[in-house]
């Protein structure tokens, strides 16, 4: 019985055409998609816009760092009395200098640049993470 019914149904439905939606079905769908896409505000993806906050902070930080460094280690600013600013002396610079011997001829300025770049990227990473978690920033 099952085989007969099955064969009968198969035969009857062979080649039957499915119901079709209206002619502008696809057009309606694509219009909706285009409309939805236009409503999505795509975030800016340029390097500088992503790092805006961090760059400002980093430039400020480096400026202060350089100023402190020169004040504490180089007696170029005759207006300022070095001894008054000894508490600002950054001892870690001295440690790094000692580590790099004269043979390498690694100048203090180069050290400052390297340390600053490292600090810049570290701070950027930290600030980016803070920004991701606090979207209001």
């Amino acid at each position: 019985m099952k085989d007969n019914t099955d064969k009968y149904i198969k035969e009857m439905l062979k080649g039957v055409k499915k119901d079709l939606p209206s002619e502008d079905f696809t057009k309606n769908i694509m219009s909706q998609i285009v409309m939805e896409e236009s409503l999505i505000i795509k975030p800016k993806s340029s390097f500088f816009s992503d790092y805006k906050f961090a760059i400002v902070f980093s430039i400020t930080f480096i400026s202060i760092f350089l100023m402190v460094f020169f004040i504490s280690d180089y007696n170029q600013f005759t207006i300022l009395n070095k001894t008054d600013f000894t508490w600002l002396k950054l001892s870690y610079i001295q440690i790094i200098r000692d580590y790099f011997s004269e043979n390498i001829k690694f100048s203090s300025l180069n050290l400052v640049i390297i340390v600053s770049i490292f600090t810049l990227f570290s701070l950027d990473t930290i600030l980016q993470r803070i920004r991701i978690n606090s979207p209001n920033l």
């Binding site: 499915k18 119901d19 939606p21």
Partner: peptide, 30 residues
């Protein structure tokens, strides 16, 4: 996203049929 229309064209008939079999109303099914 414009390419999606080719997928719509290919499968619209079957999707419509499936929905129509359940909903049993052509306007709502569309």
């Amino acid at each position: 996203s414009d390419i999606f229309k080719y997928l719509v064209e290919r499968h619209k008939s079957m999707v419509f049929t499936i929905v129509l079999r359940i909903i049993k109303n052509k306007e709502d099914a569309e």
